[in-house]
């Protein structure tokens, strides 16, 4: 049994202390407002848009639906931590190259969801890619360039 008032989260491999928080704060809120990690975006705060997607213990989930104080002892990876040295990942580079970013609001969530997909399945079909990002809403691009960016990563990684 443990009682958390000041609690510690493990984010991108580092331990981060959270102070003075209210018990109901979401992981999204704590990341952005308390820990200075604004990569994950908040739009709907009800799990519908996917812009807040992060990895928790190896699964891509909506950080707006994770109670931050319950995520102690979880391994959290945000878009900022996908590449250990802070450089751009191949998925990010491919998004830039294919112009898969317009306003960019959906982008961090998509990047995390796509990394998660390709970690689990290095050669997904087009349908599997669509399925994997069915919880990530993009209002700008119409998705064409996003799919092109993903296909390119799949091809490059398997070459």
């Amino acid at each position: 049994m443990s009682e958390n008032q000041i609690y510690t989260l493990t984010i991108n491999g580092a331990e981060r202390e959270v102070r003075d928080s209210w018990v109901g704060e979401s992981l999204l809120y704590v990341l952005r407002e308390r820990l200075g990690l604004p990569g994950a975006k908040g739009a709907c705060e009800q799990g519908e848009c996917g812009s807040c997607t992060v990895m928790v213990d190896g699964s891509a989930v909506c950080s707006c639906l994770v109670l931050a104080a319950s995520a102690v002892s979880s391994d959290i990876v945000t878009v900022e931590g996908l590449s250990p040295d802070g450089s751009l990942t191949d998925v990010q580079e491919s998004f830039i190259q294919h112009g898969a970013v317009q306003c960019g609001f959906c982008t961090p969530g998509l990047i995390v969801a796509i990394h998660n997909l390709l970690d689990e399945n290095p050669s997904p079909s087009e349908l599997q890619v669509k399925e994997a990002i069915s919880g990530n809403i993009c209002r700008c691009t119409g998705y064409g360039r996003i799919f092109a960016a993903v296909q390119d990563v799949i091809a490059t990684r398997s070459a």
Binding site: V23, G24, Q46, G47, L65, L67
Partner: peptide
């Protein structure tokens, strides 16, 4: 999993102590 619980919290329909 929080997928119902946290929606209620985020929209102030549930105020856990």
């Amino acid at each position: 999993g929080g997928t119902d619980f946290m929606v209620e919290v985020n929209f102030n329909h549930r105020k856990p102590t």
